[in-house]
Amino acid sequence: MALSEPAPHPAQEQIRPTDSAGASDTAARAVALRAPLRPAVRVPVSVPAAPGTAELTGPVFGTADVGPLDHDLTRQHRGEPVGERIVVAGRVTDRRGRPVRGQLVELWQANAAGRYAHPLDRHPAPLDPHFTGAGRCLTGDDGRYRFVTIRPGAYPLGGSNDAWRAAHLHFSLFGTAFTQRLVTQMYFPGDPLLPDDLIRNAVGAPAARDRLVSALDRTLGEPGRSLGYRWDIVLDGPAATWTEGDR
């Protein structure tokens, strides 16, 4: 399937809420009833030491998985999407700063009006026929990734307190070990909605929250065409430590 064809998951059609109150009920239920009550079980050191521990390895991806235009969300349709063109790029490393090479990076986002091309999104902002808002790329030998897209709009979360999301990009990343998997969100510097963004503030430590904010980097944009934002990503997980025998 080409990335340009949105493939709404049929189940999500079925649970489409009828209004924004329904949507916020669904969200509140998910938050209350999905997180485990018991702490995750700490994996004993003898487990990773065992030969053939699957979690210390992970899936591999290549040009069979990612097409040459999949990183450019502005070129997936006949016309160009509305919005401010941007380049978002950076390096993916482990905690020792070693590049994560040849790994899959996936991106999804709202359009410039703050609307997702997704059947669950009931925000009454226009869809853009030229924007799906999904992309993929592979990291290079130096761990670098790069996307071309448009800056997403802010959108309301629904519910009675009129909370809004700061503009953000959703990212999905893979490391060299299955346990390095990361799903997260990137924000834009200077966004006045940042201090009140409920999702970003779910990260407890202020210093950690700040690591979710990209930096304007004029060297990454295309002169006369787009501004660039730099966001480096550090994957956690045992590949950074256990394989060095220093846990």
Binding site: M1, A7, Y116, S172, Q185, A207, R211
Partner: peptide, 22 residues
């Protein structure tokens, strides 16, 4: 010395256009 990791954030409700594949 280890670099501080990038924190996780919820996958949210709208990943369906990007992550599932045939």
């Amino acid at each position: 010395m280890l670099l501080p990791p990038t924190p996780s954030q919820t996958i949210g409700p709208y990943y369906g256009t990007a992550l599932p594949f045939p």
